[in-house]
Design a protein around this nucleic acid. Structure first.
Length: 411
DNA sequence: TCTGGGGTCCTCAAACTC
DNA sequence: TCTGGAGTTTGAGGACCC
């Protein structure tokens, strides 16, 4: 029996969520983008897309392309709230739901068909429930594999459903432009174009060795299989995090080695360390990324002998790596990444050079506890506060001691 | 005129180990 | 003890996705 895989993808998701609260803007070009100077478009309604605006476009260019558009800064908490609701709704139909991003998921409906009837009926029911309960629309594709379902959902947009019967898979795929296949971006597309490959059929009929020479063995094997309708990848509900990262693009390029850059690296290290511990994980590899003013990106990473979740260890290493990274005088972006993640339970602890190891986990514990109670911005290191912004005032504060769990007044 | 942030995966070369 | 080759690991960089 052929599998029935559905791909459900929200339409212009962030922009649609904004319109829930701003019904007066429906039908108008609306662009979700950060208000800062160097941002790019995060989402655009179909009315804005008709004017040439798309996600990833620099905000300045979007303003010129759509001067009458309404610009709204992103509200990520609202998107997460709607996303959680939609995903929970999908799981009411089947536990075989694989969430691939905040606004899309694969569902394996092969088993659910016995209880709930044919897959198109199930998906139409879900789409109408999403619209009714959350006030946003979703498009969907159904096929015998994840790749076919995904390609179909893109072609169903906006607010549509496209069903590809198993026996029509090749007839559906072959006429499509080759970059319709997931995994073919501008670079791979250009490499294939040099071989004269324009459509999925061109790729499917190409000799494997020729394609492998152009784009590498792995990519060639994967894309050739997709082009020939061969894709058995299962829908996997459980997701294992492989890395945690944070990065910032500065309003203005910063000179290498300046205090502000150091402070930002410390802030990023603090942020990823907090997220690491919140997820109950430890990391063995710390990496940094530095982007020059000319957009050239350099990275450095280091693998520890044993895993850590200590802010001090991660920060110290990140600062050393940034200092040793190649690059020009002016820095546009800095990032910190944690890799080789594993569950905290049972992992041997990495001691921190030059620090009393017994103090650090306790310091992190206190910091995490305060943040859990009062929010992520409740507590930060004094070194992360820019000069001249600290105003100390004598005041009495009462709070529960996170370590002793006794109520002690403090300053 | 510009080009975010958070991810995953791949390739290639150098370093390391056997 | 030295050397070369093969296999593995690590690090850097890049492509791609949403």
């Amino acid at each position: 029996m052929a599998r029935s895989i559905a791909h459900v993808d929200m339409d212009a998701f962030f922009a649609s969520v904004e319109l829930i609260e701003r019904a007066d803007l429906r039908g108008r070009p609306v662009i979700v983008a950060p208000s800062g100077g160097r941002g790019v478009v995060v989402a655009a309604t179909y009315e804005a897309r008709a004017l040439g605006v798309h996600a990833g476009m620099p905000v300045g260019r979007a303003r010129r392309a759509a001067p009458a558009a309404v610009f709204i800064p992103p509200h990520r908490q609202a998107y997460t709230r709607v996303s959680r609701g939609v995903m929970a709704l999908l799981r009411e139909v089947t536990p075989l739901v694989e969430q691939v991003s905040i606004d899309e998921a694969f569902l394996d409906l092969t088993g659910a068909r016995k209880r709930l009837g044919a897959a198109p009926g199930i998906v139409e029911g879900l789409r109408s429930q999403i619209a009714q309960r959350f006030g946003v629309t979703a498009s969907a594709g159904i096929g015998r594999s994840k790749s076919v379902a995904k390609i179909a959902s893109v072609r169903a947009k906006p607010d549509g459903l496209l069903v590809v019967p198993p026996e029509r898979t090749l007839a559906f795929l072959r006429p499509l432009p080759v970059d319709a296949l997931p995994g073919i971006g501008p670079h791979t597309g250009a490499a294939l174009a040099r071989l004269g490959v324009r459509t999925v059929a061109d790729l499917a009929d190409s000799p494997d060795t020729t394609v492998a020479r152009a784009i590498g063995d792995k990519a060639a094997a994967h894309l050739l299989a997709l082009s020939r309708g061969q894709d058995d990848e299962p829908v996997t509900p459980e997701h294992v995090e492989k890395s945690i990262s944070a990065e910032t693009t500065f309003e203005q390029d910063l000179p290498r080695g300046c205090e502000e850059l150091r402070r930002e690296v410390m802030r990023l290290a603090d942020k990823v360390a907090w997220r690491l511990r919140s997820a109950g994980l430890m990391c063995s590899t710390v990496g940094v990324k530095v982007r020059d003013a000319d957009f050239k990106t350099h990275s450095r990473s280091h693998t520890l002998d044993s895993p850590t979740d200590s802010t001090a260890t991660i920060t110290g290493l990140a600062l050393r790596l940034v200092a040793s990274a190649r690059g020009a005088h002016l820095t546009r972006l800095a990032g910190v990444r944690l890799e080789n993640l594993q569950a905290r339970a049972g992992a041997p602890l990495q001691e921190t050079l030059g620090q009393d190891p017994s103090r650090l986990p306790r310091l992190d514990r206190v910091r995490d506890d305060v943040r859990r109670r009062f929010g992520g911005a409740a507590l930060t290191s004094g070194t992360l506060i820019p000069d001249g912004t600290v105003r100390l005032r004598r005041s009495r504060v009462s709070m529960m001691d996170p370590i002793n769990q006794s109520n002690q007044p403090g300053r």
